[in-house]
């Protein structure tokens, strides 16, 4: 349910990035990790809702979802565990680190100039 505040933060970052540029925003490319706690569908709805006016007006939003990545320190395998299980999908060890899945960032903006 916090996707609305996240959409407002995206709007703020976009406005800041495009400040003093005479360009028309056409697309926002976002990356959302499976462990970020962000629901892509809810985020899209929030973005569509707030983009009827303001800095995001008329933009398209594309979300690339990234899976959880577990790097095993027992067998060195790099696998994609499915939450709620955070372990190596090859040898089953829980010793290791989550090396991906928590990301949530604006990758790029596409504009018409």
């Amino acid at each position: 349910m916090h996707e609305f505040s996240l959409a407002k933060e995206i709007e703020r970052i976009v406005a800041e990035t495009l400040a003093e540029r005479d360009s028309k925003l056409s697309q926002v490319n976002l990356v959302v990790g499976g462990l970020s706690g962000v629901l892509p569908d809810a985020l899209l709805s929030a973005l569509e809702f707030i983009s009827s006016e303001g800095p995001l007006k008329g933009a398209k939003f594309v979300i690339r979802e990234e899976p959880a990545v577990f790097t095993c320190s027992a067998c060195s395998a790099v696998t994609n565990p499915q939450p709620p299980i955070f372990c190596c999908m090859k040898c089953g060890s829980v010793k290791g680190e989550l090396t991906g899945g928590t990301e949530f960032y604006i990758e790029s903006l596409e504009v018409e100039e």
Binding site: I13, T17, F104, Y105, L109, V111
Partner: peptide, 15 residues
């Protein structure tokens, strides 16, 4: 002309 700007900004960076 269509241009792509790389941003790479974490949405929660300010927090």
């Amino acid at each position: 002309m269509s241009i792509k700007y790389e941003v790479m900004k974490n949405v929660l960076a300010t927090n």
